[in-house]
Design a protein around this nucleic acid. Structure first.
Lengths: 352, 352
DNA sequence: GCCAGGATTGTGACCGGTCACAATTACCTC
DNA sequence: GAGGTAATTGTGACCGGTCACAATCCTGGC
């Protein structure tokens, strides 16, 4: 025997799924006709089509996605590159992408950027690129930002970014939520309650200088002529918030805290509680994202709702437009953040 | 010109990445030799290998994953089928799988089972199967269970299940955590504090009858001769817990509640708070999973820690063993749950 | 100096589809 | 019934790799 036969399994039965050639033989037509049928090509005689269709489901034929991708050059797949898959924002974006991808019958792969290390990132980007489809990079952190830069030329890519490029009018395939406005509004809310200033616990940021949330917070303070305390650096999870919260709790002048996300807020609240400071009686706390638990905490958390799922869907939509270049690439969809006031924010304590 | 050229992009420049034939030409060897070099085959003369290597990185050659998969029949990829990607347990399992897969240089794809509807599930399973690689099905819910059943013969698959098959000694490629024991221990903990009985808020379960968590809870009650209240059906998120909690809060005889997961517990705690019942003074609450927020709630949540990440890694390990059938398939790895006692559980109120 | 045998390298076919174009067949009109 | 056009169907090459086997190159032993 010549050639090879990877479809042979251990038992010796040739169990490989039927190919179009097999179907063609069964239906007594050429493989090309089978190809036409499975692709819904119009010019196939009705009777022939039926014969082929019958053969197809008798043999249980299913078109190999791999072979299709190789031959056609179109892979109908997206790889999502992200530094994390579990935190609320990331997970929700991924969910949104998956939803949109599924309904366009695209396949979704994920690649996690475990470290922001240059070569590690490069390796992961390469792997993703080799997969053949498009890329969506979540660039909320240094690893993601670096990944976005390293995507080789010629590969369709969409970035989910924190802040749009310096030129907002540019047509980079990017999507984002207006975190700056969101932070601005949350801060204004707290200031409007009468707080002298608002402290900020930051998420690990992609680009320190221009971090949108930080910028929005600062802008609101500046506009109100409030003092600008240094932001406290946090992590993504509650543990980081807890650490930050302890420092802030020790400072009696702190009466309002804005947190980079709801998990951070949770940690901060816990730290305040441990320090015996009541919320919102002595200190007000606001979060960011409106994660599912925010509404159920005690006190429930004032936060800014961000539509991450929608963001994910938009990202996929953009990518889809890019690869099927038929669809005109829609301009950057930007979802509007919404302030959700709950129990954790209130007026500052009265100084007596 | 005959044939086709999918690598031609809009600009007309042929930008396709070099193939082994291109490299071969550049290095003045046959394509087979290039193949040998990239696969590390031993019998290639050192000087030739170097020449090829030089050509490879001069041309920026990267082996097409698609072509490789098609020709070799091995795709080095896993598709994870799951009903959800955002809830703690699911997300952590996915994370574990991804970690393990990445270090084995496998690609991870995800397929979400949006509904448990028979045909919807079948469609998604088919899509996953068409992708070519192995499958890991998270079967914690009806959709997942159904998916696991529908995986066509001949495709390597590993199930992450709630309860092992009726015959624990069977060698189905399944992994699980011992949720039954976990629930049993949590319940015992509460009973040992003096509660007359423990109520249970259940997660949507895969197989009502045999739901492991429910079974463990029931076993502990029975063993202690405690009354067995009907479990309250919850959802996966805090909202469901909140609804369940309202019912339970209305019943003054309820002094201890075990929840099917930490999000449910959060909702329950909130409902109790709204009803003016203190935790743990009047009612004790215990969760399940030890999600990141559990330790930071106020009161912090007593729960059972489950190693989902490890479970995910184990699932991948099993799958890897199955596909590279060289590695002996390890017996079901079972991680041991650990009770974490925190502030939300305490003795029942003294009846005076 | 010739030959066997291992080390290297090359050739042809194949994986399961798609594309471009040629070949047939069917249907209409005059 | 001939001729022409539209509708169907078939053929050959190709995507970018891998496998099986054949061919060529070297080297040492006699």
């Amino acid at each position: 025997m010549t050639g090879h036969n990877p479809g042979m399994n251990v038992t010796g039965h040739t169990s490989r799924t039927a190919s179009i050639r097999d179907v063609a033989a069964a239906a007594n037509v050429s493989y090309q006709t089978v190809s036409r049928v499975i692709n819904g090509h119009p010019s196939v005689k009705q009777s022939t089509r039926e014969r082929v269709l019958a053969a197809i489901d008798e043999l249980g034929f299913r078109r190999s996605a791999t072979a299709h991708a190789l031959a056609s050059g179109r892979s109908r797949s997206v790889t999502v590159l992200t530094a994390n898959t579990t935190h609320h924002g990331y997970a929700s974006i991924l969910q949104g992408i998956e939803e949109a991808a599924r309904s366009a019958s695209y396949t979704v792969a994920i690649g996690v950027l475990e470290s922001a290390d240059e070569t590690a990132v490069r390796a992961e980007v390469q792997r993703a690129a080799d997969a053949g489809g498009g890329l969506i990079v979540i660039a909320y952190d240094p690893a993601g930002v670096r990944a976005l830069q390293q995507v080789p030329e010629g590969i369709p890519v969409v970035g989910v970014v924190e802040t749009p490029a310096r030129t907002p009018g540019s047509d980079r395939p990017w999507v984002w939520t207006d975190d700056r406005v969101a932070a601005y509004e949350a801060t204004r809310h707290l200031l409007s309650l009468g707080h002298e200033t608002v402290h900020y616990v930051a998420i690990p940021s992609s680009t320190r200088r221009t971090a949108a949330r930080t910028a929005g917070w600062r802008a609101a303070l500046r506009e109100a002529g409030a003092p600008e305390p240094r932001p406290v650096q946090g992590t993504w999870g509650p543990a980081g918030g807890h650490a930050a919260g302890r420092k802030l709790a020790a400072d009696p002048s702190v009466t309002a805290i804005l947190c980079g996300n709801d998990d951070l807020a949770l940690g901060v609240m816990r730290a305040l509680h441990e320090a015996g400071r009541s919320i919102p009686g002595e200190v007000s706390v606001a979060g960011f994202d409106d994660a599912p638990h925010a509404a159920y905490l005690t006190p429930s958390l004032t936060t800014v709702r961000l539509d991450f799922t929608g963001l994910g869907r938009a990202a996929f939509g953009l990518l889809h437009g890019v690869v099927e270049q038929s669809a005109p690439v829609a301009p950057h969809p930007v979802s509007v953040p919404e302030l959700v006031v709950r129990e954790s924010s209130g007026p500052p304590p009265v100084i007596s």
